[in-house]
Amino acid sequence: MFVRTQRDNFESKVVTPGQVITADTQYMRGHGTYLNEEESSHISSVAGVVERVNKLITVRPLHTRYTGNIGDLVIGRITEVTNKRWKVDINSRQDAVLLLSAINLPGGVQRRKTEADELQMRKFFAEGDLLAAEFQGSFNDGSTSLHTRNLKYGKLRNGSLIVVPPALVQRCKTHFHTLSCGVDVTLGLNGYIWVSKHSSKNLDELDPEAIYSNDNEPVDRSTRETIARVCNCINALSRHFMCITDTIIAYAYEASLKYPVKDLLKLEAMEFVTTEVRHKLSVVRSIY
């Protein structure tokens, strides 16, 4: 392990563009930093918090677009259908690419793509469709690719999308959650969150034709209200720049029951919900 030669006094320090982080040249330059012309000191290029992993120094800005990491779950929207691929908006610096060969075609995992599939690509995903996908990798020219080769991923239906700053969604073991109030929440690491009606179907018994269907199932009024309430809770959390996890959403949901759904858009209701969540989190922390 890296031996500290001097006390690191820069970790979790707030820095702004142009500020010298350290004049120690043994460190490596990470994202959000650059070396000055004499290559003698590390300078921050963004406003954020300094992080150090062994010898690598990075500065993490808190309010920024999504930068992909392999294996991340993201939620995206199709912007373009082109030759053998889709362009997907994932709130990143460029639209990601979803290749026709990187999706599960109806009729079994083992099926290969044919020319007929190329001609009817819009049957699978058309412009404006939402989908959950996994971040597959990035290339030299800065473009990125996605895949949906798992029945967990694919087209999103029966719900509502909400956009939050990507920094608020933390990387977890799973990003598919079913809340106790009976709705499913998919937390995309790119800050797109999908709140939908609970689907009780087992992944194995899913109808292969139905995965690319554009029709919503019937959603009853109380479920719609619950979805709207969860969306408003997430919106309140993001307005107050609080982390978003399944437990925090559940706390916010509990606290929000005092108000009717539409009142949650008011500032004082948001304030109340977030203070309740903070209070609850501090209580939970004091127990452990």
Binding site: P17, G18, Y34, I43, S45, V46, G48, H63, T64
Partner: peptide, 11 residues
């Protein structure tokens, strides 16, 4: 630009 987290040399 700083709020958008876009890297720049300095202010």
């Amino acid at each position: 630009l700083i709020d958008a987290g876009i890297p720049m040399q300095e202010y």
